[in-house]
Design a protein around this nucleic acid. Sequence first.
DNA 1: GTCTATAGACTGATAGAC
DNA 2: GTCTATCAGTCTATAGAC
Lengths: 220, 220
Amino acid sequence: MTSAPYASRERTTKERILGAAEALFATHGFAGASLRQVTAAARVNLAAVNYHFGSKDKLIEEVFRRRLDELNTRRLTALGKVTGAAGTTLEDVLDAYIRPALDLSRTDGGGAAFVRVLARAYAEHNETLRRFLSENYGHVLRQFATEFARLLPGLGKEEIYWRLDIVTGALTYAMADFGVIQRKVDVTERDHREAAADHLIRFAAAGMRDPTVSHAAASH
Amino acid sequence: MTSAPYASRERTTKERILGAAEALFATHGFAGASLRQVTAAARVNLAAVNYHFGSKDKLIEEVFRRRLDELNTRRLTALGKVTGAAGTTLEDVLDAYIRPALDLSRTDGGGAAFVRVLARAYAEHNETLRRFLSENYGHVLRQFATEFARLLPGLGKEEIYWRLDIVTGALTYAMADFGVIQRKVDVTERDHREAAADHLIRFAAAGMRDPTVSHAAASH
DNA sequence: GTCTATAGACTGATAGAC
DNA sequence: GTCTATCAGTCTATAGAC
């Protein structure tokens, strides 16, 4: 990492702050990264954050919105391409759900940092943030659930959501590169993520397809 | 939650600090929870943390050690009971891996808070902490991998680790209760976690058992 | 072992010059 | 829109009385 990768002079002050904040929130967390660190990395004045965003909390919100809007759109576009088609497989739908997320994590210019910010957000367990995510992603999840239900007619709606939730957990973990599996020196970052996506999609497909239905689900 | 649940008078100052720290780190993160908040919740003096633990970082370490030693032991005990037996199924081994973790998350007296601390630790991506976890858990993971390899002779060692990593991701997510699935009012906390464990074990079993081997794995 | 008091550094936010 | 200077508050850590 170079000393000030977010200070590229063709970007605006606002964008530089967003980029620097994303990287520092990923590394140190929301509480752990100070506005002084952010503005120093962005090579802007300390007062610029409050001028452009109003407060630290508003800055955090903007960091999320910028990436989530894009991921949102890309997932639905991918789903639209396979939905309703005759030969659509479970793997196709899982691919539409998983791959844009893992692609984002290898995007140049901050995407890789953002997925770690997102993982932190889940860990934060913040109610305000959960509501924000649910409001912005709720309809995406519902569209995917509908398509899964069509492909897996043996499973009830509730069972579909349980399984989709497990997939999301494994995906979040994989995106943020939490895993114990260390990339080997002769494997590129890109190939490593590709391998992770393949493993995840196959694993998820097998789990989703499992015909067994838990008796515990009956209690709901 | 009562106003000062960790100030019970039959516990020592040290234990009260650990309990309060666990709860506050879960809610606000390591950087977000101050020693003033911790000592206030524990109803001890501010200086007591530095007297008993030396520093905030050492306190964080102790919060981890206390719970991980127990989880470690319980997983290996559970694995020992099913390992090598004639009728042992994949589900039995997964149960030994998953259930102690989810049990911990419903333990009275702080276990539920700790799993959120653990999830935060993963999100922190801290190298020191990763080494700490790897040193303390590496051998546990290896023992489980060996047993999975015995039950799944069609899969290579590397494939086993990829899949175990996915299971760990879904488990971490489920433990910390990140999921979008909200517990319904007529379902107890205990039943909800039981349902989550059942779903997770079945899903993981199907994923682990999948005979398909990724072509991407060949690049390793 | 527990307390008060405080050092010394850092925080987010803002007022006001340019 | 960007700057300096600063306020008012917080933080960890420690010295020293009891």
